[in-house]
Nucleic acid binder design. Structure first.
Length: 634
RNA sequence: GCGGGCGUAGCUCAAUUGGAUAGAGCACCUGACUACGGAUCAGGAGGUUGCAGGUUCGACUCCUGCCGCCCGUGCCA
């Protein structure tokens, strides 16, 4: 019937034509087709008349009447929509459109393909997604949760739409803090205190914090002792601390130099630390059902020998200039605007006055590599919103330097998909009772544990091993969905209690809907001997969209390709979450009102079974695209 | 100081980017036939969208000015 199964696209085309025919002097104009909010009004609506009113100098209802007259006569529209008339015009000039049941069935059939109605992209892009962003020698904690979950979801949606995705885990593995811990580990290994071969990330995490403490001179404490005359003992202790810290810091700086010159012994220790970190990171991401592999990791160290060259390049071409001994790229020119078209007042510092490079320099190198070496046509960064200014500076500097320029001469779009903080139920940053960051493994464990209690209670009949596997999936789905379902930019409140209540708008509710669908298909096979295999006849059965719940479900299913596109365009996973929740809700209502296996005739049974199957495949596909694991039964 | 973000039902969040009576979930209340999984469904109650103006057919959305919270702001990453 149509080359597209998206009703909005079909209506857009028809109303665009009708509008042009009614008002040739206007030329092409967007018919503003949207799904109706209230089913009572219609399925879709065009809001073009109100906007056009002023341009053609006629009252909006008159404009709507003229467009309706043209549209009503179009065969392509007659085929899919109920006849239009003056009664289709409501309020100030809304044009309400209702689809025919047969048209819905035909559209669903057209969509019922392996791609589920998602068209191949006009141009296949290569998109680099920055995600995860862990640090050497540190456990993954809540601070990495959103960068991993959101970044993975964005990577998945781009892949789903047919693009090539390059994941980049920008590992913080270089610089003085890293040298501090490396120096400590090397010293401890030399003195036999630790064994490099059996070292765990937990040990590294402790060593990191300790090294940090040991290298930080408590000058404030010493000053306080002097000011308040706290006595010789306290004074001696603090003087000792400050002297020790200065020694350790000097040693760390020496280690940094050794690291940078690839001193065999220090470099080997550092590599060992890096391996332990990355292995653990990959394992945790695996538990989180997020795709981050070792080969997706590009440490800051991997850019270290490009930084001097980049800065030279910037200076030579007059892009960077000296300022107070540092080298900066000024971004106050007319072309140096941020994402919102605002001026950037602060310059981007690319080299410190002591000659050292900064993370801005590394990020510039990252942009250059992603565009030039990997051929990325678009860059997306799933990084904390607090780094917004930093990215606007780096992006503007990269554009200025031409590092974002694609082979065709255009700049690759650079996008910071920032996100808000994870808060505890007290509204403050989510921490443990003792004030530490919550480790992701602990977070997953607790979700798993809480899910176990629910699964054991509700599904006692399932084998224990399966219940445990289900509980882990449910726990991870609960964590991830809770994160993805709100507006990325906002902070959100992390609550196990709400997540594992499993009621309402939660990951488990979506998994449950999926499990119920599978249950029907299993039962169809087992009790009614209906073949439900891959090429089974019911998958081609005629669809009858009759009951209101069937119609609502059909309209929901058809929105799927648009929901994916919307999520990808805005880099906002909560849009797909909202769609899936609507879909699951539409299915639940359908399930409640429309018997499938017990329907009163065979034709209805097969039609509804096919509707279930299609819903299930869309649910699975959508959940997978968000990065949520699914189970067949729970 | 300057820049940015946020403020929506008791609580947690939406609102197709300017569209119709601002929607969900939790909690609260009322219902659901010995039908496919009650982790469900149908319904009720709950709102001056921080405040005050403005723009227009129409504003949670855009503009201006305030109030409150958070974040960032030249040599950490």
């Amino acid at each position: 019937m149509a080359d597209s199964s998206d009703p909005i696209a079909l209506l857009d085309s028809a109303f665009r034509g009708a509008t042009a025919a009614a008002f040739p002097e206007i030329g092409d104009s967007d018919p503003l087709i949207t799904a109706s909010k209230q089913a009572a009004l219609g399925d879709f609506q065009s809001n073009v008349a109100m906007g056009l009113s002023k341009r053609v100098g006629k009252p909006p209802r008159e404009v709507a009447t003229a467009i309706v007259a043209k549209a009503a006569a179009m065969p392509e529209l007659q085929q899919i929509a109920e006849p239009l008339s003056d009664k289709s015009i409501a309020g100030p000039g809304f044009i309400n459109i209702r689809l025919k049941g047969e048209a819905l069935a035909a559209l669903l059939s057209a969509m019922d393909t392996p791609s589920l109605g998602v068209p191949a992209p006009d141009v296949k892009e290569t998109i680099a997604v920055d995600l995860c962003g862990v640090n050497l020698a540190k456990q993954m904690h809540v601070g990495h949760l959103r960068a991993t979950i959101i970044g993975d979801a964005l990577a998945r949606v781009f892949e789903r739409l047919g693009h090539k995705v390059i994941r980049q885990n920008h590992l913080g593995d270089w610089g003085l803090p890293i040298a501090m811990v490396t120096a400590k580990i090397a010293a401890d290994a030399n003195s036999g205190k630790i064994n490099l071969d059996t070292l765990k990330l937990d040990d590294l995490d402790k060593a990191y914090k300790q090294a940090q403490r040991e290298c930080t001179a408590d000058e404030a404490g010493l000053a306080a002792v002097e000011r308040f005359q706290l006595g010789p003992k306290a004074r001696a202790e603090l003087e000792e601390q400050v002297r020790g810290a200065k020694e350790k810091l000097a040693a760390a700086k020496l280690t940094l130099v050794k690291l940078q010159s690839h001193d065999p012994e220090i470099y080997a220790v550092w590599q060992r630390i890096a391996k332990i970190t990355v292995d653990e990171c990959v394992a945790v991401c695996g538990r989180l059902h997020a795709t981050v592999r070792a080969e997706d990791t590009a440490g800051e160290s991997s850019y270290s020998n490009e930084l001097a060259e980049i800065v030279d390049d910037l200076v030579k071409r007059g892009i960077a200039e000296e300022s107070d001994g540092a080298l900066v790229v000024r971004l106050d020119g007319p072309d140096d605007l941020d994402d919102r078209g605002q001026k950037i007042t602060e310059p981007c510092i690319v080299r410190k006055s002591d000659g050292g490079f900064l993370y801005a320099t590394t990020d510039l190198a990252g942009i250059r590599r992603r565009v030039r070496k990997f051929g990325a046509s678009r860059l997306v960064y799933a990084v904390d919103a607090r780094q917004s200014l930093h990215f606007q500076q780096v992006f503007a500097a990269a554009r200025k330097a031409g590092y974002a320029r694609k082979p065709n001469g255009e700049n690759a779009p650079l996008r910071h998909a920032g996100f808000g903080m994870v808060l505890g139920e007290d509204g403050r940053p989510f921490k443990t009772r003792s004030g530490d960051n919550v480790k992701l493994t602990d977070l997953i464990d607790e979700a798993h544990q809480r899910a176990s209690a629910e699964v054991n209670r509700r599904s006692a009949a399932l084998p224990e091993a399966e219940r445990d596997r289900i509980a882990e999936v449910v726990g991870v789905a609960a964590i991830k969905y809770a994160d993805l379902c709100n507006d990325r930019m906002k902070d959100y409140v992390f609550s196990f209690d709400r997540m594992v209540a499993f009621e309402g708008n939660t990951g488990p509710y979506l998994l449950y809907a999926f499990a119920r669908i599978n249950s029907i298909l299993r039962k169809a096979q087992a009790e009614k001997s209906i073949d439900t295999g891959p090429g089974a006849p019911f998958r081609k059965a005629a669809l009858h969209i009759v009951q209101p719940q069937e119609k609502t479900l059909a309209l929901a299913i058809l929105r799927y390709p648009g929901a994916l596109k919307s999520m990808a365009d805005a880099c906002e996973p909560h849009r797909l979450c909202g769609f899936l929740y609507d879909l699951a809700g539409a299915f639940s209502s359908f399930y409640d009102a429309c018997p499938v296996l017990a329907a009163d005739n065979e034709s209805t049974v097969l039609s509804r079974l096919r509707l279930c199957d299609l819903t299930g495949r869309v649910l699975r596909d959508g959940l997978t695209t968000l990065g949520l694991p699914v189970v067949e039964r729970m």
